[in-house]
Amino acid sequence: MEINEMKKMTYRDAIRLGMTEEMRRDDDVIFLGEDIGLYGGAFGLSEGMLDEFGEARVMDTPITEAAIVGTAVGAAATGLRPVCEMMFMDFITLGMDALVNQGAKMHYMFGGQAAVPMVLRLPAGSGSGAGAQHSQSLEAWLCHVPGLKVVTPSTPAQAKGLIKAAIRDNNPVCFIEHKMLYKMEGLVPVDDEFTIEIGKTFVERPGKDVTIVTYGTLLHKAIEAAEFLAEEGIEVEIINPVTLYPMDMKPIVESVIKTGRLIVAHEASKTGGVGGEIVARVVESEAFDYLNAPIIRLGGLDVPIPYNKELEAAVVPQRNDFVHGVYRLLNRE
């Protein structure tokens, strides 16, 4: 189908539109979470959805994360396609058993019986002064669990395409949405069959000098840095994995073969982060022999996210960190 018509909307509206379209398309899709009904979601994401779909499909739950996730797994295994919202990604810790021990493993552990087509929406990231228990980026935890899929959109169009693909996927998909992107505007395909393939890595900006692999809000900081560097004649290739697990490494490996230089960046704490995994896979691949400089990992500091605005910003890599990283790789610093 031709994807021509685009409409400008926010990241938040794009997620809502994606969910709404899927709920209209498939009666088995239900939506559960805390304060998603009349309240419209803690971030206003589900405003108006209760009116359209009613309480049977837009289900306010008690504050009971373990039961929300477990219920979603059970419902998914028996024929529904639940989408559930953790108010903050941090709260997934309370639902970990159902996700990790039950949902992720069920299909394999039962020898191919029972699909678990559920989506866990996880608002993540710092930048809102929400403090240590409401600002984490815990994607690396989820990427460590075989059976889960972990995706994270960086633009409104990606948000719509991915939430729809996630709902249609027959596996538990962790959909990590960055809180600081909710108000970001962008053009989104109007087509209700528009989806973004899960498990596909995207080249966001072509270049030949240095490869930057990043996702989430940092993608935008990387693009800013790339624009700055372009004025100096440095062409940075930016790659957004979009699907963090299972990750499509091919475009990353190809890019590193081309540039010989790699920066991997994420907001989450550096130690044990997804970046380390990407780097390890690059080094294991044929790209190793093309590396012409040490790899740089930009990650969040290994600290809980502090409250103070300046301190909070200091934890997360910024645009200049990308610029200096590129300089370093090109021996310009």
């Binding site: 477990g70 059970g74 998914a76 159902a98 039950q102 552990m109 029972a114």
Partner: peptide, 29 residues
């Protein structure tokens, strides 16, 4: 982990207490 999901046995569970919330989901369906 003996299970026969098609016939309604949504599985034995190695996690003590793991089946309660799954049952809620199955019942919700």
């Amino acid at each position: 982990h003996i299970a026969d999901v098609e016939n309604g046995n949504i599985g034995a569970n190695g996690i003590v207490g793991g089946g309660f919330t799954l049952s809620c989901g199955a019942a919700l369906t």
